[in-house]
Amino acid sequence: MHQPPRRDRRPARRARPEPIRRQASRLTVMGADVVVVGYFSAKEKDFVTLMNSAATGLAVRGARVVGQIVQRRGVSDGGVQKMALPFSSRTLLSHGKVLEVAEACERADADAAVFVAALSGRQQRALTALLGCPAVSLPEILAAG
């Protein structure tokens, strides 16, 4: 027996998922213990000043900086050619440095890890899962107020 053709052969539309809210909006830095993490190439000679200004900016907003960790790229001879690239597109840092940051966050019982560099949503999710505390970027915190 012949079936009548369906009127609409288009697939059903799916409802759009809720947009993911950024970590910075959920994190209140007032009274939070934070670890500041910086990623700098060897070309950046003044990274200490950048780390200190990031710590000062967070302290002005009421955060307590309980640790600072720096990842340098291109300091060794082998890294010079890849100096502008992150160690990992997923985490920005090398695997060992991620473990070091996680250990520092756990030891200091930090509420968040604040990265001086801007993080993508994928990097924030991966780092939050690996560190055990929210990973946020400093530009988002400064933009939030």
Rank of each mutant, 00 (worst) to 15 (best):
A54K: 07
V37A: 13
Q81V: 13
L131H: 09
I69D: 07
E106G: 14
H95K: 14
L130S: 15
A113L: 06
A42F: 06
A118G: 01
R14T: 14
T56P: 00
V114S: 03
M1I: 09
R26Y: 08
P139C: 09
V60N: 05
Q23N: 07
D46V: 05
G74L: 02
R10L: 14
D8G: 10
A84M: 09
L99Q: 13
A32D: 00
L92F: 05
Q23M: 12
D111Q: 07
D33P: 00
L27A: 01
E18N: 05
V36T: 05
G31K: 04
P4H: 11
R10P: 01
V98W: 08
A32R: 08
F87L: 14
L131K: 09
A32Y: 02
R7L: 15
R107I: 03
V36Y: 06
E44I: 13
A144K: 12
L92D: 00
S76L: 07
E44N: 12
K43Q: 11
A102L: 05
R64M: 09
I69H: 10
Q81M: 12
T49C: 00
K45W: 04
R90V: 14
G74F: 01
A12F: 07
F87Y: 15
L27M: 03
A59H: 02
S88H: 06
G67E: 04
R9H: 10
G96Q: 07
Y39L: 13
L99D: 12
G121M: 10
T91P: 09
Q123T: 08
S137Y: 02
L50A: 08
M51F: 00
G79H: 03
V114D: 06
A12N: 02
P19L: 02
V35T: 08
G78S: 13
S137M: 08
D8V: 14
A24Y: 08
A24W: 09
A42T: 04
V60E: 14
S25V: 15
P86N: 02
R125Q: 14
V34M: 05
A117C: 10
L131D: 08
R16H: 09
R16K: 14
R61H: 07
V66S: 07
K45V: 12
M83Y: 01
N52Q: 15
G74H: 05
F47E: 03
G79S: 04
V48E: 13
R72D: 06
F87I: 03
A12H: 09
P134I: 11
E44P: 00
S76E: 13
D8L: 13
Q123N: 08
G62P: 00
A102W: 02
V114N: 05
V36F: 03
I20A: 15
L138W: 08
L127Q: 09
